[in-house]
Design a protein around this nucleic acid. Structure first.
Length: 107
DNA sequence: GATGTGACGTTCA
DNA sequence: GTGAACGCCACAT
């Protein structure tokens, strides 16, 4: 527990996101006990690429692909979400609540 | 040891 | 209803 960094927890949760589902930074932060510090969850994603974490399934509370800039700087993030059956328009997830996955609830 | 930063979230004006 | 500012905690320098 304590030996593992906060990032490792974020990676684990993010990797547990089921296919075709998405979650928010705040939801993960809340699951880790860092409620209100959703900023670090996104920051933790800085190393997500090294962990193989599907960061594209993690979006902000509005279902907006805020972090898409950190991928390849293109619509790759949106492309991946659409590939999973998630409707994305203008970097915004449609029916976000329908695709929302809460680690506290389902994990 | 202290300061700055950050892919958010919430609240106030 | 829209816009802006503040607060949060952990990691990096």
């Amino acid at each position: 527990m304590s030996t593992e960094g906060f990032f490792e927890k974020v990676y684990q949760v993010a990797m547990h996101i089921p296919y075709g589902r998405v979650t928010s930074y705040g939801a993960i932060a809340n699951y880790l006990g860092a409620t209100g510090s959703a900023r670090m969850v996104g920051w933790a994603m800085n190393g997500s690429g090294s962990k193989g974490v599907p960061a594209h399934r993690v979006v902000n509370r509005n279902g907006l692909l805020t972090g898409k800039h950190h991928f390849q700087g293109t619509n790759l993030m949106q492309q991946l979400l659409e590939s999973e059956g998630i409707e994305v328009v203008d970097n915004k997830i449609q029916n976000f609540e329908t695709h929302f996955w809460d680690p506290n609830k389902e994990l």
